[in-house]
Structures are given as C-alpha cells and as structure tokens.
Amino acid sequence: MTIHTDDGLATYNFAYLDEQTKRMIRRAILKGIAIPGYQVPFASREMPMPYGWGTGGVQVTAAVIGPDDVLKVIDQGADDTTNAVSIRNFFAKVAEVETTTDTATASIIQTRHRIPEEKLKEGQILVYQVPIPEPLRFLEPRETETRKMHALSEYGLMHVKLYEDIAKNGHIATTYAYPVKVEGRYVMDPSPTPKFDNPKMHMSDALQLFGAGREKRIYAIPPHTDVVSLDFEDYPFEVQTFVEPCALCAAHGVYLDEVILDDKGGRMFVCSDTDHCEKRREGGHRGHLAGDARETAQ
C-alpha cells in the first residue's frame, strides 16, 4: 500500500521505508532478539531528519509498525518536546497510525533517553533511539578491537573504568548510559537513559528494541531477560535519589528534572515523565508549586 497526497499521486510506501529496507531491518531485529545485547549491523538508511534526531529508532519503528498500532513518542520523558512531537507527526502522516501520550494505551513507545515511570505491559514494544551503541567506544576507539572484546566476552576494561570512577570520586560517578550485562553475556549500552531507569530493563514484560542510525546498529532485549548493571561487591549499583518530591504532583520515587526559575538560584524539581505527572495531577495529587487553575486565571 502507498500513501497518497491530495492530488492522488503515490509518494511513498506505508511507514515511509520501502519493503526491501523493512525486510533488512526486520531480519536484524530478529537476530538481535535471538542474541540479546549483541549489536547487529544493519544498512541504515537516510531518513528525512538529521542524525542525532532518532533516525535509528525511527527506522526500527517503521519496520515494526502496522495500521492497528498506537504510537507514543517521548523525548527525555516528555511527550511535548520538539523531537517527540515531530516523530509522532511523522508516523501519523506516513503510516496513518493513531498516536497517544498515554503510556498504558500505546502498543509502541519510541523513546529518547527515558523509560516511562508506569510499568510496561506484556505486548508493548519500547523502541530506544541510540546515539552511540558501543559501550566500550570511549575506552577503545577501534571497532576491530571492541568487536573482539565482545567476541571474547572481555570486559575488564569496563570494570577498570568504573573502578577509576571510585578511585577519583569515591563512588561510581557514571550517571547515564550506565553499562549493563544482558543474560550474563553481552555488555550493552542502555542508551543515555539515567541509571535510575536501569532496573526497569531487568525482567521487563515489554520487548525492548534499540536503533542507532548513524552507527548502523540494532540490538534488543526480549521480555523477561536478565539485565544487570555492572558494579562491585563493595560498591553496589545504586540509582539516583531525590530529596524533594515532584513540585507539581508530589510524586516520590520518580526521576525528576531540575528547572531553573530565575537568576537568583530559584529552582524546582518536576517529573521528567510528563504523562505520569499529568495523570497524578488529574488524580488530585498536588505538589507545593502546582498552584491551581483559578489562581492561574487571575
């Protein structure tokens, strides 16, 4: 099927990509699922957006999506930022799918750098946009070497890096793109999500797919798969904690963004997951800066 413009001319295939490209990406996705955490090379295409704007995630979504899917796109947890809005509009146009901001009703969630706070369910697919898929790249720039290190399961260098963190800072100072080991075999970059989200990858009910467009890699974590953040016995993995709750919805135990309010040091902490925050406020939860609608009107 082709998508038609108003004048009746066919312009592109359903979901933008041609069928041969979809088959190539689909084969890569299947091998990625069969070898969890292994980065499958794929012939990434040019997309109508620049590298760094989620071309990998968009290609994975385009290869997977069907007319019955409901798509949600988030950027740093938010549904309403430029990247999220434009990718959502892209698929509404080229695949004519329904879109949503509601985590629970989405069948496919494409994400840039967050995992939703709401627990994902069986049958949902989380598609990550990945800038640099190789967790060892900043330690070893040569692809030939990192490939050999994965082949031999030789990950000592990564532990040295985490150890140097401790030696310099007294704790593991890596806070995002925190390396994980998948099913006891491959060390994997979870994309630049805050390490706060790492535990959500472990034994998730949802299928997790990762697409890196510029670096031409696809990888995957099937549901119910062991995902362990690297650490040491005496310096166990810990997630970020926040002293204050969300200033708008008073949520504890969620990931918060710091928002600067003025140039006198004023700041507030709010949920990075906008859908979660809005639902809580609809449910009557109020943070100390939430105000209320009547006040705003005045």
């Binding site: 099927m1 359903f14 699922i33 069969a34 069907g66 007319p67 299928l207 099937p222």
Partner: peptide, 20 residues
C-alpha cells in the same frame, strides 16, 4: 494479495514468537 500489510502482520507474529 496485499504484500505490505501481510508481510507486516507475519513479521509481527515472528517477532513476538522469537521474543517469547
């Protein structure tokens, strides 16, 4: 009969089956 949507439907079945 309808290659684009048929392939997408079969692929999703294979992907779900491979993931579970």
């Amino acid at each position: 009969a309808d290659p684009v949507f048929a392939a997408q439907t079969v692929f999703r079945a294979v992907m779900d089956a491979m993931a579970r």
